[in-house]
């Protein structure tokens, strides 16, 4: 299997769908075949969500199974750990440092593990992380967390900088272009 497999994970409502749509557009613009598999419906209500982005010369399956992802882009630290088995050997985790307690933790029936991202690194995995909310706020909108993470991923994947910015300009609402460009740069230049 050649090509690129990207897993985008997070908590329902965090804006993972826009990130996957942009990723898909960037690969298409560079002439690749693309499949993106999204989650709609019940899990969007605060549950663990996953989107698959696959690009290559010809892509058949829209899903990524365990051990197949080149990169995991994660909007939340615990979700990075949950989906880690989907990472290919030698792959990279790009994670937001945000921690959102799931209901079993809020209820005191489970524990949010300490130092989650450190544990991923301890498992021998390359982890690149940032407080994407801080960077997004710095760029001008807390909603730009997804674009900050996209910037981080673009750097790791070696994507063409101009292609990424063009995809962003063509996808986000006109009045948010400036903020999103800033957010992308903050992630890209981390």
């Amino acid at each position: 299997m050649n090509g690129i497999n990207i897993l985008i994970v997070g908590v329902g409502g965090q804006g993972t769908l826009l990130a996957s749509k942009l990723m898909g557009k960037i690969f298409i613009d560079s002439g690749m075949d693309v499949k993106v598999s999204e989650v709609h419906g019940m899990s969007q209500r605060g549950g663990s969500v996953v989107t698959y982005v696959r690009a290559g010369e010809k892509v058949f399956s829209p899903v990524i199974d365990m051990g197949e992802a080149d990169v995991i882009i994660s909007f939340e630290a615990l979700e990075s750990a949950r989906w880690l088995p989907y990472l290919k050997k030698g792959g990279t985790v790009i994670s937001n440092t945000a921690q959102i307690d799931p209901m079993p933790v809020i209820m005191g029936n489970a524990v949010y593990p300490e130092n989650v991202l450190g544990r991923i690194a301890d498992a021998g995995v390359k982890v690149i992380y940032a407080n994407a909310l801080d960077l997004a706020t710095q760029a001008g909108s807390a909603k730009a967390v997804n674009i900050v993470l996209l910037g981080m991923a673009a750097k790791v994947l070696g994507l063409n900088y101009d292609d990424c910015l063009n995809a962003i300009r063509a996808t986000v609402p006109a009045k948010t272009i400036e903020v999103n460009e800033k957010a992308f740069n903050l992630g890209y230049n981390l």
Partner: peptide, 19 residues
């Protein structure tokens, strides 16, 4: 079978909830 990695601790489930 594909090779996989995992963290060394329990990961609490995250079921969907009322917003």
């Amino acid at each position: 079978r594909k090779e996989t990695v995992a963290v060394d601790c329990e990961i609490p489930p995250r079921p969907p909830v009322l917003c």
